[in-house]
Design a protein around this nucleic acid. Structure first.
Length: 447
RNA sequence: CGGGGCGUAGCGCAGCCUGGUAGCGCAUCUGUUUUGGGAACAGAGGGUCGCAAGUUCGAAUCUUGCCGCCCCGACCA
């Protein structure tokens, strides 16, 4: 992409409304624009990141055996009356009336709808287990939206629903999602810690929040130090095999958010290993048994021919919120520092002097070769001054910058800057190309 | 929903108390000089002062109502 064609409205000054770094940088780097409280447009740069996050989430869901579908944003109130949640949900649910005075709602979640879909198409235990998911916009009319996309009213969420015959089988589905989540956040470049969450009236041990540690997190969290750098299952993990060891490894050490915090239990952790921090909830997995299947009559014939309600669980990832979490985790005073897998472009190619024949020629050559290697390039071909170009590229935070200009070319060199470390090296054009290509390609292969 | 704050040019703000027909910095446009980490000079364009009503000869400024946004709290499968 040529910068001269791209739409990238940057701001030098920080808008007064934005309180936290991720919100400030998303506005300054031209990634989002607020439409109303907690509602944002995704501008081209931000949308590219959102799609990358979404795609990684999708790949890991598919790997775990979940099946993608798409349910609508608008739902009928009728279904929610079946489950009893239409009244229970309260004002957080945005209620809409259509021209025929039918009661509708903008979905805050999809348990009812997916249960209806599943009951309509499933008769026998032989059709189980199944996991269905979709990635769709949700709306929750939060009393007070804040922190930009971290706590918006409209947000993009991946939600998976599992259907099993027995609680024991449901546990296996739960473990699949547990492992998929570890892999997903790891691929995004985030260190996540699963923490015990409130299971509500169902009870049991099957609810976890996945927390990314960050100073600006909304929840106070407590955990054992070893959880933070624990290696995640590799891409060769067998989702049909026994996943319990992975789960046990992660859940045997203490980790809890504020609401589940137990001081006495935490004090059993050796003092040096106790970590008290702030965290951002990026995922939540939950087993809820027959909470919806029973009232909504989502049943299958069991081995004995009798109908039994299916055992269900739901598993959410806040896709749009993750973007905020990523910036909170990866930024410095100059701007964003995107990890390669989610970067809006991989390389920022800076032509310091458009119009200079040799600079133009080499930039065009770099651009073609990088694109040919499957690398996404944002080529700054604008006539702006060098200082502005550098500052701009630092702000939007592409992982690598290649700087081409007459001064370097006089000695046959170009500069390569790694945004994350800030390291700058002088290389010949061929070396620079190999260096950058190699780094990016290897960073794109999922572990 | 309770408490607080704010709404003046694309962004950041001053002016309001003490009414007199709108200003600063950045950004934008033109020209000249510059040119490797957010240039300098000269000039230019851009605002129904959130909306409505009221007071007044006259309202960005005073009064009332409404709308919107932000912060703290409560809330957050």
């Amino acid at each position: 992409m040529y910068l001269s064609r791209f739409y990238l409205p940057l701001m030098k000054e920080t808008p007064a409304d934005a309180q936290i770094i991720s919100h400030q940088l998303m506005l300054r780097a031209g990634m989002i624009r607020q439409g109303a409280a907690g509602i944002y447009s995704w501008l081209p740069l931000g949308y590219r990141v959102l799609k990358k996050i979404e795609q990684i989430v999708r790949e890991e869901q598919d790997r775990a055996g979940a099946v993608e579908m798409l349910m609508p944003t608008i739902q009928s109130a009728e279904l929610w009356r079946e489950s009893g949640r239409y009244e229970a949900y309260g004002k957080e649910m945005l209620r809409i009336t259509d021209r025929h005075d039918r009661e509708m709602l903008y979905g805050p979640t999809n348990e009812e709808l997916v249960t209806e879909i599943f009951r309509a198409g499933t008769r026998s235990y032989k059709d189980l287990p199944k996991m269905l998911y979709h990635i769709q916009w949700k709306f929750r009319d939060e009393i007070r939206p804040r922190f930009g996309v971290m706590r918006g009213r409209e947000f993009l969420m991946k939600d998976t629903y599992s259907f099993d015959l027995t609680e024991e089988a449901a546990r296996k589905s739960y473990y699949k999602m547990f492992v998929a989540y570890l892999r997903t956040f790891n691929r995004l470049g985030l260190k996540s810690v699963p923490m015990k969450a409130d299971t509500g009236p169902i009870g049991g041990d099957l609810s976890h929040e996945f927390i990314v540690l960050a100073e600006t997190g909304e929840s106070q969290v407590y955990c054992h130090r070893e959880l933070i750098d624990m290696a995640v299952p590799g891409s060769d993990v067998d989702f049909d095999g026994d996943l319990e060891p992975f789960v046990r490894e992660r859940t045997s050490l203490y980790a809890a958010t504020d609401e589940m915090y137990d001081e006495k239990e935490f004090e059993k952790v050796p003092e040096d290993d106790r970590i008290t921090a702030r965290g951002i909830e990026v995922g939540h997995i939950f087993f809820f048994g027959t909470k919806y299947s029973a009232p909504m009559n989502c049943v299958v014939s069991g081995h004995d021919g009798r109908n039994v309600p299916v055992q269900m669980g739901s598993y959410g990832i806040g896709v749009s919120r993750l973007m905020g979490a990523l910036i909170e985790a990866y930024h410095d005073e100059d701007g964003c520092r995107w990890p390669v897998p989610v970067a809006p472009f991989h390389v920022g190619l800076i032509n310091l002097k458009p119009g200079d024949e040799e600079s133009d020629r080499l930039c065009r050559e770099f651009y073609a070769k990088l694109q040919g290697a499957g690398i996404e390039v944002l080529y700054d071909d604008t006539p702006a001054r060098p200082g502005e170009k550098f500052a701009r590229m630092d702000l939007i935070g592409l992982p690598y910058q290649m700087v081409v200009g007459p001064r370097g070319l006089a000695t046959g060199h170009v500069e390569v800057k790694e945004r994350h470390s800030g390291e700058r090296i002088e290389l010949t054009p061929d070396e620079a190309l190999d260096h950058v290509t190699g780094k990016i390609i290897s960073a794109l292969v999922p572990a």
